[in-house]
Amino acid sequence: MLTKRIIPCLDIKDGRTVKGVNFVELRDAGDPVELGKIYADEGADELVFLDITATVEKRKTLVELVTKVAKTVNIPFTVGGGISTIDDVKALLNAGADKISINSAAVKNPDAVNALAREFGSQCIVVAIDTKRIDGIDFVHTHGGRRPTLLKTQEWAKEITERGAGEILLTSMDHDGVKNGFANDITSELSSMLSIPVIASGGAGNMQHFHDVFTAGKADAALAASIFHFKEIPIPELKSFLNEKGVNIRKML
């Protein structure tokens, strides 16, 4: 049976992990390759590397980083952050990334989703949506959730699916960083409506939250950052908790 996926997310700046990472096993807490390998060995099902480097020049280090990750990590990984052109995507996939994720660029130019899906196949094109509820209506936000758009989240999700997105990474800005649980309502709404997998992000605070997003939220995968980085929830513990609760997850050999 197809399993639900647990995905740690690493924020990268100039080739280094940022946002606090608190791992005693790490020789160098800033090395995303080392951290990625630890997560893979612990049973993470995939990894997401989100590049928040601003300048084009420094982004070259991202391709080098992706090469190192691909050489080291034996599970699939996605790279996102500031990706917009076919050349960007080609460079990252050629370096060994399994999927790329686009966000603001898709809102700015929706045809880019079609172009990327046609060129590389839907399976490696993840479209990230940052959503925020305003007066009871869910709106897409861009630029790390800071900039509102007039796009309704449900309509946008449907549109990008039709344009060829392979997966949706849905981050609820209302829930992100609050640790009060994922946005199960909109996650479930999108997951039921769409013919592609939905990765839920934002709000993970305890193990029950993962259970809820996989059941009530109908998510195909759940993504989190700090709770893994600070070892608040070790992945093996999370997986045995979910397994005991009857959620179908992958067990390590």
Partner: peptide, 13 residues
Amino acid sequence: PPLNKVPHIGWNN
């Protein structure tokens, strides 16, 4: 057939 999400993405036994 479109009876579930396609592509089949993820871990299966």
